[in-house]
Design a protein around this nucleic acid. Sequence first.
DNA 1: GTACAATTAGATAGATCGCTCTAGTGGGTG
DNA 2: CACCCACTAGAGCGATCTATCTAATTGTAC
Lengths: 192, 192
Amino acid sequence: MVGTKDRIMDSTAELFRRQGYNGTGIKQILAAANAPFGSLYHFFPGGKEDLGAQTIRSSGQLYMELFATIAVQAPDVLTAVSDFFTGAAQTLEETDYADACPIATVALEVASTNEPLREACTEVFDAWIGGASAYFTAAGIAPEKARELALSMLCLLEGAFIFCRAMRSTESLHVAGASAVAAVREALESAA
Amino acid sequence: MVGTKDRIMDSTAELFRRQGYNGTGIKQILAAANAPFGSLYHFFPGGKEDLGAQTIRSSGQLYMELFATIAVQAPDVLTAVSDFFTGAAQTLEETDYADACPIATVALEVASTNEPLREACTEVFDAWIGGASAYFTAAGIAPEKARELALSMLCLLEGAFIFCRAMRSTESLHVAGASAVAAVREALESAA
DNA sequence: GTACAATTAGATAGATCGCTCTAGTGGGTG
DNA sequence: CACCCACTAGAGCGATCTATCTAATTGTAC
């Protein structure tokens, strides 16, 4: 059986990615998690902000692991990048354009208004950039170039999420994916 | 003298880009605009949503005009794209990482929760994509390729804004800008 | 000057927000 | 059995949210 704390965090993660931090109420989270009100402040003494910070870190890490899973299954780097964008597009369509990046909405909301949550987002993004950089470096790309490539790929992904969700179309995700694959291909050819 | 309605919309635009839609209260907007409470529902009978829709369209168009202004002043296409990213990075630093995209935060917030506002964002994004596509087409790039280029550039820009604001660094904007310039250069060379 | 519309002004309603509080339940341990 | 601790349960507080309401004021055309 899944513990109450996990149920709360799972519901929070799902609601945050769809409605953001300010758009999600505590009562809504608890109703979705089918959790008692008192449990929230038992598991998260710091209240909504505490819950938010833990959820950001948790779902951020989960999302990085999703990329790692896809990367392990793919035969090569180019396929991995392509599969990741394609998979994101498919998820978006299946969820009626709701489930894209788990923390982007929250990141923009809190960047100028809530320092602890902003720092949680920074940590997640740092891990993503570091993870992708290491992945490209392992494929034979120079560290500095690998970081630029990782940053570009993530920018393409996050930007595409915005357009896809707002415009209810996966076009930008497919175009951005193709663009990311092309950039990685060039870097690989230069390295060889 | 600037009319009350314009003052309200200006304040709304500034607050939306920093705190998003849900994070911005009507009283805060009116206080910032130094406008009386009654005026809001006089000029925006539909309330906050009405104000939000008009502000999204207005600030979205203003932002497109900003790109047009930079493009006109630049000697060539590559310089224009480069200047736009550099200018965005400079603005971000000058405003303590607050002023990036005028509607991205709102777009993510409302994409799955508020259909009228989502449609307003779609209109703005459509105009941006169309405008950038036309700009690249005028530079000699085939229409289909121009649209892909426009989409990639905008994804890079929007994605970079997320990382820059959350991480309080302009690194991603500079890397994304370089990536966008490289993509446009290749397209121009292929077209020639 | 008068009349009429546009705008300003703010009190207040009604709902919801995050959060605190006390009381109670249930299961494992001595 | 008694005890304790983790957890459940929900009433209710003060604050804040959007929106409505009436009334006063301002601007303008006749």
